[in-house]
Nucleic acid binder design. Structure first.
Lengths: 199, 199
DNA sequence: TCCTAAACTAGAATAACTTTCTAGTAAAAA
DNA sequence: TTTTTACTAGAAAGTTATTCTAGTTTAGGA
């Protein structure tokens, strides 16, 4: 059958994705600040005008890439969490998912951990919101376990840092080439996470 | 008595410090990438030439500020750690020190947690080295406790993330205005850190 | 089917910034 | 004293981000 001509919407989405993907490659290779708009534009095979039409600025590209990635990561974690029936299983699932996702998507993980992104106030607000939502969802997911006494009663803001803090920090070390793969310690860290919040 | 005329060395050091301090203020207010060399230069009341003479580039200013700060923080932590006689005391001291230092130096803490710094390869190497030294020192400090069975036997790279990860992550939330002061949870987090590594 | 508005693309022109360069001053060393 | 080195200054040059103008393509309404 004839390949139907792609609709405009389809092509637009594809172009945006190709710009984001080109940007990710550039950012990983040279760092965000060191990447010129021209680098992204060349690699994505689009014009400056096109890039600015879709993203407004280089910052805009970096921000959207970051936000989309965080959204995917968060929703993946929450999906795992919701599937778990028991407190211990839930907590450990979060640690495992973070570790697995990072090793499966090293470029994205590197980007999320990179330090040279300059967010606009709007993007910061947006990220704050995403994080708040995530923390709230986790808290909600845990509420039942806490009531039942399976998990400790802690300040709402404390659960995520206690559970994810160590594996995140370890992953950062791994990305910097200063530690082995997270998969080697994820069991240990899952155990620690559970110890930190169990009832 | 007469105030003696300051020596050149003294004035140079003072000027460098004033540039670093002006830079910190600018970075906190507008972000690293968004601050222009002219901003720093104006606030420090020096010329472009002077700034470039001392630091080579805007990046150079950001790097030196970061490295000097990390060094101070690390040495403070190690000092606390060395003073502690017992395993539990040591571990908790690290958490307390990190929390206290961050609340006492919010601008510097904010800068250390900021994401928009573009380090040169040399600076990255230097930071890697500092971190390696820190992790090694911590490990050495703990060696005795581990032998005695007071602390668990873990991969060398695991201690720091397990102990400091949660309080760092919580501090990040606090700086983003998404959680209360670290001082409110430091006891809780110190306890969790100890649970994560105790024998 | 044709027309119009909106989305999109292109690349030259512009503007903003970083970095370099030249010239000169002040302090320390010889 | 003289010479060398560290330092400062600000104009000039070079780079890069962003804007602008012009034009093309597509979706949707008449």
């Amino acid at each position: 059958m004839m390949p139907t001509k792609p609709t405009r919407e389809t092509r637009t989405k594809a172009r945006k994705l190709s710009i984001l993907s080109a940007a990710l490659d550039c950012f990983c290779e040279k760092g965000v600040e060191a990447t010129a708009v021209a680098d992204i534009q060349r690699r994505a095979q689009c014009s400056v005008g096109s890039l600015y039409h879709h993203f407004g600025s280089k910052e805009g590209v970096a921000e959207e890439l970051f936000i989309v990635t965080i959204q995917k990561l968060n929703s993946g974690m929450l999906r795992k969490l919701k599937r778990s029936k028991h407190a211990e299983e839930s907590v450990k699932a979060v640690v495992f998912f973070y570790s697995d996702w990072s090793t499966r998507n090293p470029k994205l993980a590197r980007y999320l951990h990179s330090r040279d992104i300059d967010f606009s106030p709007e993007a910061k607000t947006r990220l704050r919101l995403l994080r708040r939502e995530y923390i709230a969802s986790v808290f909600t997911g845990f509420a039942g376990f806490v009531e039942r006494g399976d998990m400790a009663v802690l300040p709402a803001d404390a659960y995520v840092p206690l559970i994810s803090g160590p594996i995140q920090e370890y992953t950062r070390l791994w990305l910097a080439g200063q530690a082995g793969s997270p998969s080697q310690v994820k069991g240990l860290f899952a155990e620690a996470a559970w110890n930190a919040v169990k009832g």
